[in-house]
Computed example of a mutant assay.
Amino acid sequence: MRISDLKQKEVINICDCKRLGYVGDVDFDMDTGCLLAIIVPGPGCFCGFLVREKEYIIPFCDICQVGRDIILVKVDLEKAEEKCKI
């Protein structure tokens, strides 16, 4: 699978069935070549001139399944947002 194939897949959180968006980027370990995380841009903010305030960095271990059209992940968004506030 190519990175361009991943970017066409929608990411859905199975904890709350929320659509997080589409894969925007990936994080690789340069030494091993292993995929560390996928990065999904957060929702745009109209007041901020459509600038994205946050992004979801989803570790590889939280990816449940990669399908033909979607990627299922298991992420507790409340805990992830608490980490961002610190």
Rank of each mutant, 00 (worst) to 15 (best):
L36E: 14
F49H: 10
I12W: 01
D31N: 14
R68H: 14
C84Q: 14
D27T: 07
E10P: 00
I38H: 04
C84D: 12
C84A: 15
G24Y: 01
L72K: 13
P43Y: 11
M30N: 07
E81L: 12
E81H: 10
C84T: 12
K83W: 15
V51F: 09
V23R: 03
R68V: 15
C34P: 00
I58F: 02
K9A: 01
V11A: 04
L36I: 13
E82T: 07
R52M: 00
I70A: 06
T32M: 02
Q65H: 14
I57M: 04
G21M: 02
N13V: 04
M1Q: 15
K83H: 13
F28G: 06
D16N: 10
V66G: 04
T32Y: 05
Y56H: 13
V66D: 03
G42R: 07
P43M: 12
P59Y: 04
A80Q: 14
D69V: 05
I63M: 10
E81M: 14
D62C: 14
D25P: 00
V26D: 03
C84N: 11
R19K: 15
K79W: 07
I57W: 02
D62K: 10
C45K: 05
V26S: 02
I70G: 00
D25Q: 05
D76N: 15
I14S: 06
D25E: 06
D27P: 00
P41D: 08
V66Y: 03
K74V: 02
F46Q: 12
V73W: 02
Q8E: 11
G24C: 00
V51G: 08
I86W: 10
G21W: 00
I39V: 15
G44A: 11
M30C: 08
G48N: 05
S4Y: 04
L50G: 09
R52A: 00
A80I: 11
V51D: 05
D16F: 01
K74H: 08
L72F: 08
F28Q: 08
R2N: 15
V26E: 02
D5R: 08
V73Y: 01
K18P: 01
I58T: 01
D31W: 07
A80D: 13
R19I: 15
D27S: 07
I14P: 01
K83V: 15
K83N: 14
